[in-house]
């Protein structure tokens, strides 16, 4: 059986839309589940320990605690800050190959 091109296109589009809807519905379902369990548990951790920031970037004070950064200090660094001196754009990245990585679990 030969299917006409427009039928094939409409069928393909319908399948794609169905996949998008399925992924969105699944994502929203997961979000709703997490909102009543995971998020509340994380909020409890933040409240008990008095945490103010997420533990994402650990390389500098101003990336570990962006909300506590003292933007007012002279010569201070902060996320997206302008480079203080031209040298900052010229100096190369330090050799990090000697940095040991965390052990695999």
């Amino acid at each position: 059986m030969i299917i006409s091109k427009h039928r094939a296109f409409l069928l393909l589009t319908a399948v794609e839309v169905a996949v998008v809807i399925a992924l969105v519905v699944r994502a929203r379902g997961v979000a709703a589940d997490l909102a009543v369990t995971d998020i509340l548990a994380k909020r409890a951790v933040a409240a008990r320990l008095g945490l103010t920031d997420l533990a994402i970037w650990t390389e500098a004070r101003y990336t570990r605690h962006p909300s506590q950064t003292d933007l007012f200090s002279p010569f201070q660094d902060f996320p997206s800050s302008l480079e203080h001196f031209p040298a900052g754009s010229v100096v190369g990245v330090p050799d990090l190959t000697g940095f040991r990585q965390p052990a695999e679990p």
Partner: peptide, 12 residues
């Protein structure tokens, strides 16, 4: 959603 659990006010 998580940081709603942060302190109301931090004084540095």
């Amino acid at each position: 959603q998580i940081l709603i659990g942060a302190p109301d006010l931090v004084v540095q």
